[in-house]
Design a protein around this nucleic acid. Structure first.
Lengths: 328, 328
DNA sequence: TTGAAAGCGCTAACAT
DNA sequence: ATGTTAGCGCTTTCAA
């Protein structure tokens, strides 16, 4: 049953039905009532497929996350979702962790007009590949971004955040600070690495030999295994800085398994400030990212860009903040 | 740039271009090559809005979750996503926690043909409201379902699972077993409540006065607060059964805060078996749900139903399993 | 193997 | 205030 059927039954034109449905044009109250009556009676619902083609928009926002099993990303997505829904958009959510293959990227969903815009939380490397097309494609980088690139972004200053975190450990008297990093394809990974080295350098320290490891992912188990690897080399650091809370929480478990106690033997510092931080024992000291705000800002920026594609959009850097708790 | 432009440049009809793009009909190799050349040269991408209208499908699967900040739901969604993508579908994800208002349900996205089908993880109450329309609407209930209803479902036997969990606590000598439940609108909440009572009954026990609480959500903090409430009544249970691991983990933290130790003072039993269970101290004993499989099965069922709407589909009950660890 | 043409359901410009 | 009508971009029947 289409709009034609409704128009026929109500004795009006399809245009009038359309006006009633979208209640934007002036329609005589009686006419409106009559049409609404037929619509209710028939249980008619506008077919968005037709509307979308006609208006050339899908009202869908493509959101690409590396892994929404990670509470950090989950919280950002919730931020995006809130803004999107308030503006009448919905989320086309893609978990990029499983990998889609080189020939077929999720950006195709944008090119194919399946989405009106996209928010990408994926590694900057992928993004750089695509930034050429940036003028045509409507998207925002979130968390992973190139400050010098052409793509509008929102994120934090990862280098400084890591610097602050490690400086704190140093200030607390720690001298052998291990570093649990993730995939170096991630820009945040490179930047936090840099911040870590900077802070050590300023303090006249160097990374302990074998104390810098790279994990293939951000699960708790990756953190646990990373610590096991470090300890297996014989190294006994007095602090660990992890680029993710999930990694840090896994690391704490790994340290416990090895009979080491946190923070007396080893301080542990995480990154993100997920809810879980205050649920583990000891509570996790971490660098907070404003996750919800990150998502909201990304969505607002994107919507802005969708509505006014030509306006220049500034990149936005939000503040990080150290949360001192029991683990360091 | 549309298919017409490509057809013109390649000197063929739009039908031929369409055939090339969908490479389903026989097209002469030279013709194909020529068309593909133009497509590549022009960077043409089919507009899915047009295709969707014509084929009357969106290739989108609506997924409604109460809260994908909860790792339990996140894992299910990943299961759904994997199957969906393998079949050329994508996820239209809606977080229902924020509430959409009575007049406008997410099912409308289905009625409006924005999605080809839906998987609903939302409370059964909402679902029952809608099950009348079930013949017309194409959707699957996941986790939350009415075994006697008309809606195809996949889930576990919550009553038995809770029964098994509590029976285990009893068998370990626990006599005063508190129950941390969530919103009773959830069917699982009612069923696990029933299983809890059954197990106590069989053991000749009764719920300790003030030992059954209901939380407004499933965050860690809800668990922590629930325990605080119980302890505030003066009750000192020797075990706690929570309907969610997140609740249980929060409860453990609450017990610690109150100076109680797990499991010597109080045993704690969770539900779901999220990854985090082995990262807390002590590790959490819990009833495992096959989360990934739950999601995969739901997606397969839905796809099946989309392709063959008339075939009867059986409800599927998957197995639960007790995981004994340190907390109980 | 290819082309012509209809039409999916809707909106919006234009006419009345 | 309402109707007429073109057309969004695509697929698909039918004909050649």
């Amino acid at each position: 049953m289409s709009i034609i059927e409704i128009a026929r039954r109500a004795g009006v034109s399809t245009a009038t039905v359309s006006r009633v449905v979208n209640n934007n044009y002036s329609v005589r109250p009686e006419t409106r009532k009559k049409v609404e009556g037929v619509i209710a009676e028939m249980g008619y619902r506008a077919n968005f497929l037709g509307r979308n083609l006609r208006t050339a928009q899908s009202r869908l926002l493509l959101t690409m996350v590396p892994d929404f099993g990670n509470p950090f990303y989950a919280e950002i997505v919730r931020g995006i979702d809130g803004v999107a829904r308030a503006e009448g958009y919905h989320l086309l959510l893609c978990d990029t962790s499983s990998g889609v293959g080189a020939d077929r990227t999720y950006f195709d969903l944008l090119r194919n007009r399946m989405a009106d815009g996209a928010i990408c939380l994926d590694p900057a490397t992928i993004q750089q590949e695509l930034s050429q097309e940036t003028g045509e494609l409507c998207w925002i980088a979130c968390c992973e971004f190139d400050p010098a690139g052409a793509v509008p972004f929102v994120g934090i200053d990862n280098t400084r955040a890591a610097f602050d975190a490690v400086s704190y450990l140093v200030q607390r008297g720690r001298r052998s600070i291990a570093f649990l990093n993730s995939d170096p394809r991630f820009l945040y990974s490179q930047q936090r690495h840099e911040g870590y080295l900077n802070a050590l350098h300023v303090a006249g320290l160097t990374p302990p030999a074998g104390g810098m490891v790279t994990t293939p992912g951000l699960t708790y188990d990756h953190g646990r295994e990373a610590i096991a690897d470090i300890l297996a080399t014989g190294l006994r650091p007095d602090a660990v800085f992890a680029v993710s809370d999930t990694l840090a929480i896994g690391a704490m478990q790994g340290l416990r398994n090895a009979g080491l106690s946190v923070p007396s033997d080893v301080s542990v510092m995480g990154f993100d400030n997920i809810q879980l931080c205050t649920m583990v024992q000891p509570e996790l000291t971490t660098v907070a990212q404003p996750m919800h705000q990150l998502g909201e800002t990304a969505a607002k920026l994107l919507l802005q860009r969708i509505r006014n594609p030509d306006a220049a959009i500034e990149g936005i850097v939000l503040d990080h903040k150290l949360h001192i708790r029991g683990s360091a």
